[in-house]
Design a protein around this nucleic acid. Sequence first.
DNA 1: CATAATCATAAACCATGGCTTATGATAAGC
DNA 2: GCTTATCATAAGCCATGGTTTATGATTATG
Lengths: 109, 109
Amino acid sequence: MVYDYAGVVALADPTRRKVFELVADEPRSVANLARTLPVSQPAISHHLKVLREARLVRAEPRGASNIYHVDPHGLGEMRAWLDQMWGNALDAFRNEVNKAKEQNNDGDH
Amino acid sequence: MVYDYAGVVALADPTRRKVFELVADEPRSVANLARTLPVSQPAISHHLKVLREARLVRAEPRGASNIYHVDPHGLGEMRAWLDQMWGNALDAFRNEVNKAKEQNNDGDH
DNA sequence: CATAATCATAAACCATGGCTTATGATAAGC
DNA sequence: GCTTATCATAAGCCATGGTTTATGATTATG
Protein backbone atom coordinates (compact mmCIF):
# COMPACT_ATOMS: atom_id res chain seq x y z
CA MET A 1 0.00 0.00 0.00
CA VAL A 2 2.01 2.94 -1.30
CA TYR A 3 -0.93 5.19 -1.98
CA ASP A 4 -1.03 8.94 -1.77
CA TYR A 5 -1.80 10.37 1.63
CA ALA A 6 -1.39 14.12 1.07
CA GLY A 7 -5.07 14.54 1.91
CA VAL A 8 -4.78 12.97 5.35
CA VAL A 9 -1.69 15.01 6.14
CA ALA A 10 -3.49 18.14 4.96
CA LEU A 11 -6.45 17.57 7.26
CA ALA A 12 -4.33 16.61 10.27
CA ASP A 13 -3.58 20.22 11.25
CA PRO A 14 -6.43 21.91 13.19
CA THR A 15 -6.28 25.38 11.65
CA ARG A 16 -5.78 23.93 8.18
CA ARG A 17 -8.80 21.75 8.72
CA LYS A 18 -10.68 24.86 9.81
CA VAL A 19 -9.62 26.63 6.61
CA PHE A 20 -10.90 23.69 4.60
CA GLU A 21 -14.20 23.64 6.47
CA LEU A 22 -14.73 27.37 5.93
CA VAL A 23 -13.98 27.04 2.23
CA ALA A 24 -16.21 23.97 2.10
CA ASP A 25 -19.03 25.93 3.70
CA GLU A 26 -18.83 28.54 0.97
CA PRO A 27 -16.17 29.84 -1.43
CA ARG A 28 -13.99 32.46 0.24
CA SER A 29 -11.10 34.78 -0.53
CA VAL A 30 -7.78 34.69 1.28
CA ALA A 31 -8.52 38.04 2.90
CA ASN A 32 -11.85 36.75 4.14
CA LEU A 33 -10.21 33.69 5.71
CA ALA A 34 -7.48 35.84 7.23
CA ARG A 35 -10.16 38.08 8.73
CA THR A 36 -12.10 35.10 10.08
CA LEU A 37 -9.27 33.07 11.62
CA PRO A 38 -6.78 34.24 14.25
CA VAL A 39 -3.72 33.76 12.01
CA SER A 40 -1.87 36.00 9.58
CA GLN A 41 -2.61 36.18 5.87
CA PRO A 42 0.63 34.42 4.85
CA ALA A 43 -0.26 31.56 7.19
CA ILE A 44 -3.61 31.25 5.42
CA SER A 45 -1.92 31.31 2.02
CA HIS A 46 0.45 28.58 3.13
CA HIS A 47 -2.37 26.36 4.39
CA LEU A 48 -4.24 26.91 1.15
CA LYS A 49 -1.14 25.87 -0.77
CA VAL A 50 -1.00 22.57 1.12
CA LEU A 51 -4.73 22.00 0.56
CA ARG A 52 -4.30 22.94 -3.10
CA GLU A 53 -1.46 20.45 -3.59
CA ALA A 54 -3.60 17.80 -1.93
CA ARG A 55 -6.26 18.75 -4.51
CA LEU A 56 -8.80 19.33 -1.77
CA VAL A 57 -9.23 22.95 -2.82
CA ARG A 58 -9.05 25.03 -5.99
CA ALA A 59 -8.25 28.71 -6.54
CA GLU A 60 -10.18 30.97 -8.92
CA PRO A 61 -8.82 34.49 -9.53
CA ARG A 62 -11.44 37.20 -9.28
CA GLY A 63 -9.89 40.59 -9.74
CA ALA A 64 -7.21 41.08 -7.17
CA SER A 65 -8.79 38.35 -5.03
CA ASN A 66 -8.36 34.62 -5.12
CA ILE A 67 -11.58 32.77 -4.39
CA TYR A 68 -11.04 29.27 -3.07
CA HIS A 69 -13.53 26.47 -3.70
CA VAL A 70 -13.74 22.82 -2.73
CA ASP A 71 -12.20 20.53 -5.34
CA PRO A 72 -14.40 17.44 -5.58
CA HIS A 73 -11.74 15.71 -7.68
CA GLY A 74 -9.17 15.46 -4.92
CA LEU A 75 -11.94 14.88 -2.44
CA GLY A 76 -12.90 11.77 -4.41
CA GLU A 77 -9.30 10.60 -4.59
CA MET A 78 -8.87 10.80 -0.85
CA ARG A 79 -12.19 9.11 -0.36
CA ALA A 80 -11.06 6.22 -2.55
CA TRP A 81 -7.76 5.95 -0.70
CA LEU A 82 -9.50 5.78 2.65
CA ASP A 83 -12.10 3.33 1.39
CA GLN A 84 -9.35 0.93 0.33
CA MET A 85 -7.64 1.30 3.71
CA TRP A 86 -10.93 0.71 5.46
CA GLY A 87 -11.71 -2.30 3.33
CA ASN A 88 -8.38 -3.93 4.05
CA ALA A 89 -8.59 -3.26 7.77
CA LEU A 90 -12.16 -4.55 8.08
CA ASP A 91 -11.46 -7.62 5.92
CA ALA A 92 -8.52 -8.48 8.15
CA PHE A 93 -10.70 -8.02 11.21
CA ARG A 94 -13.37 -10.33 9.83
CA ASN A 95 -10.77 -12.98 9.03
CA GLU A 96 -9.46 -12.69 12.55
CA VAL A 97 -12.93 -13.18 14.02
CA ASN A 98 -13.63 -16.13 11.76
CA LYS A 99 -10.33 -17.75 12.72
CA ALA A 100 -11.23 -17.35 16.39
CA LYS A 101 -14.63 -18.97 15.79
CA GLU A 102 -13.07 -21.95 13.99
CA GLN A 103 -10.74 -22.51 16.89
CA ASN A 104 -13.69 -22.48 19.27
CA ASN A 105 -15.49 -25.04 17.10
CA ASP A 106 -12.40 -27.24 17.08
CA GLY A 107 -12.35 -27.05 20.82
CA ASP A 108 -15.97 -28.27 20.94
CA HIS A 109 -15.22 -31.48 18.97
CA MET B 1 -17.78 21.12 13.55
CA VAL B 2 -15.79 20.38 16.70
CA TYR B 3 -15.56 16.66 16.16
CA ASP B 4 -12.78 14.37 17.20
CA TYR B 5 -9.93 14.07 14.78
CA ALA B 6 -7.42 11.91 16.65
CA GLY B 7 -7.79 9.30 13.92
CA VAL B 8 -6.74 11.63 11.13
CA VAL B 9 -3.77 12.86 13.14
CA ALA B 10 -2.82 9.27 13.92
CA LEU B 11 -2.81 8.25 10.26
CA ALA B 12 -0.96 11.35 9.08
CA ASP B 13 2.48 10.03 10.04
CA PRO B 14 3.97 7.61 7.47
CA THR B 15 5.56 5.09 9.81
CA ARG B 16 2.55 5.15 12.11
CA ARG B 17 0.33 4.49 9.14
CA LYS B 18 2.66 1.62 8.25
CA VAL B 19 2.31 0.23 11.78
CA PHE B 20 -1.45 0.41 11.46
CA GLU B 21 -1.40 -1.31 8.08
CA LEU B 22 0.77 -4.13 9.38
CA VAL B 23 -1.50 -4.64 12.38
CA ALA B 24 -4.51 -4.43 10.10
CA ASP B 25 -3.03 -7.11 7.85
CA GLU B 26 -2.74 -9.45 10.80
CA PRO B 27 -2.42 -9.12 14.59
CA ARG B 28 1.19 -8.59 15.61
CA SER B 29 3.33 -8.20 18.69
CA VAL B 30 5.43 -5.13 19.41
CA ALA B 31 8.60 -7.15 18.91
CA ASN B 32 7.35 -8.35 15.53
CA LEU B 33 6.66 -4.78 14.40
CA ALA B 34 10.03 -3.62 15.73
CA ARG B 35 11.71 -6.41 13.76
CA THR B 36 9.76 -5.56 10.60
CA LEU B 37 10.14 -1.77 10.56
CA PRO B 38 13.42 0.19 10.61
CA VAL B 39 12.69 1.94 13.92
CA SER B 40 13.40 1.10 17.53
CA GLN B 41 11.01 -0.79 19.81
CA PRO B 42 10.17 2.29 21.93
CA ALA B 43 9.26 4.15 18.74
CA ILE B 44 6.86 1.34 17.85
CA SER B 45 5.38 1.39 21.34
CA HIS B 46 4.85 5.12 21.09
CA HIS B 47 3.10 4.86 17.72
CA LEU B 48 0.92 2.10 19.09
CA LYS B 49 0.00 4.31 22.01
CA VAL B 50 -1.19 7.05 19.66
CA LEU B 51 -3.13 4.55 17.58
CA ARG B 52 -4.57 3.05 20.77
CA GLU B 53 -5.74 6.44 22.05
CA ALA B 54 -7.34 7.08 18.66
CA ARG B 55 -9.10 3.70 19.19
CA LEU B 56 -7.82 2.45 15.86
CA VAL B 57 -5.99 -0.42 17.54
CA ARG B 58 -6.39 -2.60 20.62
CA ALA B 59 -3.82 -4.47 22.73
CA GLU B 60 -4.29 -8.01 23.99
CA PRO B 61 -1.69 -9.39 26.43
CA ARG B 62 -0.44 -12.86 25.53
CA GLY B 63 2.20 -13.95 27.96
CA ALA B 64 5.01 -11.46 27.91
CA SER B 65 3.86 -10.23 24.51
CA ASN B 66 1.27 -7.64 23.60
CA ILE B 67 -0.65 -8.60 20.50
CA TYR B 68 -2.20 -5.64 18.71
CA HIS B 69 -5.40 -5.94 16.70
CA VAL B 70 -7.49 -3.54 14.67
CA ASP B 71 -10.24 -1.91 16.72
CA PRO B 72 -13.32 -1.66 14.51
CA HIS B 73 -14.97 0.60 17.08
CA GLY B 74 -12.62 3.55 16.58
CA LEU B 75 -12.45 2.72 12.90
CA GLY B 76 -16.19 3.26 12.70
CA GLU B 77 -15.98 6.51 14.66
CA MET B 78 -13.41 7.96 12.32
CA ARG B 79 -15.41 6.75 9.36
CA ALA B 80 -18.46 8.59 10.64
CA TRP B 81 -16.46 11.75 11.26
CA LEU B 82 -15.08 11.71 7.74
CA ASP B 83 -18.47 10.92 6.23
CA GLN B 84 -19.94 14.01 7.86
CA MET B 85 -17.05 16.13 6.62
CA TRP B 86 -17.52 14.69 3.16
CA GLY B 87 -21.21 15.27 3.21
CA ASN B 88 -20.85 18.92 4.18
CA ALA B 89 -18.14 19.57 1.61
CA LEU B 90 -20.05 17.90 -1.22
CA ASP B 91 -23.34 19.56 -0.28
CA ALA B 92 -21.64 22.95 -0.35
CA PHE B 93 -20.14 22.12 -3.72
CA ARG B 94 -23.53 21.16 -5.14
CA ASN B 95 -25.06 24.40 -3.86
CA GLU B 96 -22.24 26.31 -5.47
CA VAL B 97 -22.82 24.61 -8.82
CA ASN B 98 -26.57 25.21 -8.62
CA LYS B 99 -26.04 28.87 -7.82
CA ALA B 100 -23.78 29.18 -10.86
CA LYS B 101 -26.45 27.55 -13.06
CA GLU B 102 -29.15 29.93 -11.81
CA GLN B 103 -26.96 32.88 -12.65
CA ASN B 104 -26.47 31.53 -16.15
CA ASN B 105 -30.19 31.10 -16.57
CA ASP B 106 -30.78 34.68 -15.40
CA GLY B 107 -28.31 35.84 -18.02
CA ASP B 108 -30.28 34.03 -20.71
CA HIS B 109 -33.54 35.86 -19.95
C1' DC C 1 -0.54 58.09 -12.23
C1' DA C 2 -0.63 57.27 -7.38
C1' DT C 3 -2.63 54.99 -3.60
C1' DA C 4 -4.81 51.11 -1.55
C1' DA C 5 -6.02 46.29 -1.45
C1' DT C 6 -5.15 41.43 -2.33
C1' DC C 7 -2.13 37.68 -2.42
C1' DA C 8 2.12 34.61 -2.83
C1' DT C 9 6.82 33.83 -1.54
C1' DA C 10 11.04 34.15 1.38
C1' DA C 11 13.43 34.22 5.69
C1' DA C 12 13.61 33.48 10.48
C1' DC C 13 11.70 31.76 14.79
C1' DC C 14 10.17 28.28 17.67
C1' DA C 15 6.98 24.66 19.32
C1' DT C 16 5.50 20.12 18.18
C1' DG C 17 6.51 15.59 17.72
C1' DG C 18 9.21 11.56 16.02
C1' DC C 19 13.37 9.19 17.15
C1' DT C 20 17.08 7.13 20.06
C1' DT C 21 19.26 5.48 24.28
C1' DA C 22 18.46 4.17 29.00
C1' DT C 23 15.78 1.95 32.42
C1' DG C 24 12.44 -0.66 35.06
C1' DA C 25 8.66 -3.98 35.22
C1' DT C 26 6.50 -8.33 34.00
C1' DA C 27 6.55 -13.01 32.12
C1' DA C 28 8.69 -17.11 30.02
C1' DG C 29 12.54 -20.63 29.91
C1' DC C 30 16.51 -23.09 31.67
C1' DG D 1 15.91 -18.34 41.25
C1' DC D 2 18.52 -16.45 37.44
C1' DT D 3 18.70 -15.29 32.92
C1' DT D 4 16.33 -13.90 28.77
C1' DA D 5 12.61 -11.78 26.24
C1' DT D 6 8.93 -8.47 25.79
C1' DC D 7 7.15 -4.09 26.49
C1' DA D 8 6.10 0.72 28.35
C1' DT D 9 7.83 5.04 30.05
C1' DA D 10 11.25 8.84 30.65
C1' DA D 11 14.69 11.98 29.05
C1' DG D 12 17.00 14.20 25.54
C1' DC D 13 18.02 15.27 20.64
C1' DC D 14 16.82 17.14 16.41
C1' DA D 15 14.12 17.64 12.08
C1' DT D 16 9.69 18.99 10.50
C1' DG D 17 6.47 22.31 9.92
C1' DG D 18 3.33 26.10 11.53
C1' DT D 19 3.72 30.98 12.43
C1' DT D 20 5.16 35.86 11.91
C1' DT D 21 7.28 39.85 9.69
C1' DA D 22 8.97 41.64 5.40
C1' DT D 23 8.60 42.22 0.55
C1' DG D 24 7.24 42.30 -4.25
C1' DA D 25 3.71 41.56 -7.80
C1' DT D 26 -0.85 42.26 -9.53
C1' DT D 27 -5.26 44.62 -9.66
C1' DA D 28 -8.85 47.84 -8.39
C1' DT D 29 -9.75 52.86 -7.05
C1' DG D 30 -9.28 57.84 -6.77
